[in-house]
C-alpha cells in the first residue's frame, strides 16, 4: 500500500507553487502522541468543525466550546483513528456529533423539567426564522437532529452521512425521512409561520 508523505523543497521554487499539502490520513497516522503534528490537523480542521457545530446548534459560544471538546477528544482517540476506516474529517464530524448529541440530550431533559414546572408560553413565538428553526430542531431527538444537520446543514450525501455515523445508508434514509416529518411538525407547533 502506498502512503502519502510530506516533503520540503531543497531549492527555492521559482514558480512559487506551494507544495502539495500533507494528506490528512498521512498526518493522522503519525500524529498520535505528537502534539505538533496534531496541531497541523487541528489548525486545518478547526473552522470547518466549529462551523458544523454552529449550524448544528445555532449557538456560536456553544459551538466554540464543543469544537474545543472535539479536538481534545480527537487527540486522545487518535491511536484508534485508523481503525475507523473513514476520512479524517468524517471522523472529526463523528466526534463532534457525539458531543453535540450529548448536549442535545441534556437540553431535552432540562426542557422537560422546566415544562413540568412552568408550562411554556405559547403566546411568545420565536423572534426570527433562525430562532424558529433551532427551537424546533432542539425538540427533535439527538439522532434526528444529527441526520438533519449532516444532510441538510452540512450538505453531505446519504452515503457520506452513513459513513460518518457508521450506519447503513438505508438506515440514514429512513431516519432522515422521519426526522424531516418531525421537524415539520415542530415548526408548525412552535409558532411562526407554518
Amino acid at each position: 500500500m502506498t502512503q502519502a508523505a510530506c516533503s520540503i523543497p531543497t531549492t527555492p521554487d521559482p514558480g512559487g507553487q506551494p507544495l502539495a499539502p500533507c494528506p490528512d490520513a498521512a498526518l493522522a497516522a503519525r500524529a498520535a502522541g505528537d502534539p505538533e503534528l496534531f496541531a497541523t490537523l487541528y489548525r486545518r480542521h478547526f473552522e470547518p468543525v466549529a462551523g458544523y457545530l454552529l449550524r448544528r446548534t445555532g449557538n456560536q459560544a456553544l459551538a466554540e466550546d464543543l469544537a474545543a471538546d472535539t479536538f481534545l477528544a480527537a487527540w486522545k482517540a487518535l491511536p484508534t483513528y485508523q481503525d475507523s476506516g473513514i476520512p479524517f474529517r468524517a471522523w472529526l464530524l463523528r466526534i463532534a456529533t457525539n458531543r453535540a448529541n450529548a448536549v442535545a440530550r441534556r437540553e431535552r431533559v432540562r426542557r422537560r423539567v422546566l415544562a413540568f414546572l412552568a408550562p411554556p408560553d405559547h403566546h411568545n413565538p420565536p423572534a426570527d426564522d433562525t430562532e424558529h428553526l433551532y427551537t424546533a430542531l432542539a425538540r427533535l431527538s439527538a439522532e434526528h437532529q444529527t441526520v438533519i444537520s449532516l444532510v441538510h446543514l452540512e450538505g453531505l450525501s446519504l452515503e457520506q452521512t452513513a459513513r460518518t455515523l457508521g450506519l447503513a445508508e438505508g438506515t440514514v434514509k429512513s431516519r432522515l425521512h422521519r426526522a424531516r416529518e418531525a421537524l415539520k411538525h415542530e415548526l408548525a407547533r412552535t409558532g411562526g409561520r407554518p
Binding site: G51, H132, L187
Partner: peptide
C-alpha cells in the same frame, strides 16, 4: 418553508475565532 429555513441555516459560516485556546494550551 422547512427547506427554506434549512437552506438559510446552511449558509451560516463560522465567524468566530480560528483557534481554541483550550486545545492549544493542552497541546503546548
Amino acid at each position: 418553508r422547512m427547506n427554506e429555513l434549512l437552506a438559510r441555516a446552511r449558509r451560516r459560516a463560522w465567524t468566530g475565532p480560528d483557534h481554541a485556546p483550550r486545545v492549544e494550551e493542552h497541546l503546548k
